[in-house]
Design a protein around this nucleic acid. Sequence first.
DNA 1: CATCCGGATGAAACAAACTTGCAATCAGAT
DNA 2: ATCTGATTGCAAGTTTGTTTCATCCGGATG
Lengths: 157, 157
Amino acid sequence: MPVLPDLDAFDRAILSILQKDNTTPQRMIGEAVNLSAPAVQRRIRRMEERGVIRANVALVDPAKVGHPITIFVEVEVESERAELIDAAKRGFAAVPEVQQCYYVTGEADFILVVTVATMADYEALTRRLFFENNNVKRFRTFVAMDRVKMGLEVPVG
Amino acid sequence: MPVLPDLDAFDRAILSILQKDNTTPQRMIGEAVNLSAPAVQRRIRRMEERGVIRANVALVDPAKVGHPITIFVEVEVESERAELIDAAKRGFAAVPEVQQCYYVTGEADFILVVTVATMADYEALTRRLFFENNNVKRFRTFVAMDRVKMGLEVPVG
DNA sequence: CATCCGGATGAAACAAACTTGCAATCAGAT
DNA sequence: ATCTGATTGCAAGTTTGTTTCATCCGGATG
C-alpha cells in the first residue's frame, strides 16, 4: 500500500485556485504558482486520482431554477441501531431535494439541507421523509431567509 | 428591463450535466441533448451571464486537506436590529472556516457550517466568533460524524 | 566519491476542445 | 407576403489540454 505523500505548497496553491474557478487555464495557474502547464496538469490529475478533488462542477443558483427556498432540518430518530441509521442515510441521500445530509452528535441525529420550489413541496417532502418513517421521532425546521454564504470551499492555506 | 426568459428543456438538460461534471466536453453534451457544440456553448455562456451558473469550481475533500471535522452551529442573537444582523452576516461570511452561513427563521437566527482541523481550532473559533461577540446570545454545536451527502446540486428536472 | 534510481520538471510537438463568423432556418409580428 | 429577431449548424481559426522526451535533482548504494 503506497503511503500518500502530503500535499505540498504547489498543490495547495493550485487547489486554492481551482476551488474558486476550475476553468482557469493551466498556463495561467502555472504563472501564478511558478510551474509549467504540464506540471500543473500532472498535479491536478494526481489529486483527482487520490480523491483530494472529489468533483468538478458548476454551481447553480437555486432561485434561478425555480428552487427559491432553502431549509435546514434537524432530525431526531427513535432508534440508533446501526442498520436503521444506515437505512436512514441511504433514504435521505437518495432524495434529490436533499442536497446535504450529515449524521451528527448533539441534540439531533441528522441535519439536512433541502431545496424546494414552494412550502407546499416541503410539506409533501416532510410527509414522505418523516411522517411516513417510523424511525423519525421528531424534526425541526429552519427556513432560510438569506443565503449569506453558500459554498463548499475548504481552506487549504 | 429585459424580462429573462425561462430556461427551456435544453438548458435544464445542460445544467443537469454540468452540475455533475463541468469538464464534460461540449461536443459530448451536445450529443446528449441533441444540439451542436456551439449551441451548447452559447447556452452555457448565457446562463453564466445571467447568474444561473454562479461559478465553476473543484470540490475538495475536506479530510484530505487537513480539515477532517465538519460542524453545524446554530446561533441565536440578542438583537435583531438590521444593522447588527448585517454586521453578523458580514462577520461570519468573512471567515474562511465558515463555508456556509444562512440567516434563518425558527429557534435559531443563523446556521453555520464550519470546517476545522481539530476541536481545539473549533474552540478557538467559537471564542472569536461567539464569545467575543456581544450580540451572540447562545449557540449550539453539532459535530458531524458522517458526511452522508455533501453537495450543492439543485434539481432542475 | 562515483553511480544508480525514482520522481519531478520544462520545451516542444501533438491532439482536443473551445470560440467565432456566416449563411440558413424558424416563429411571430406587421 | 414580408420583415425581424433569435437560434441553429457548419467550418475555420484560436486557445487549451495532453503526451513525449531529454534533463535535472536528491537520496540510497556500492
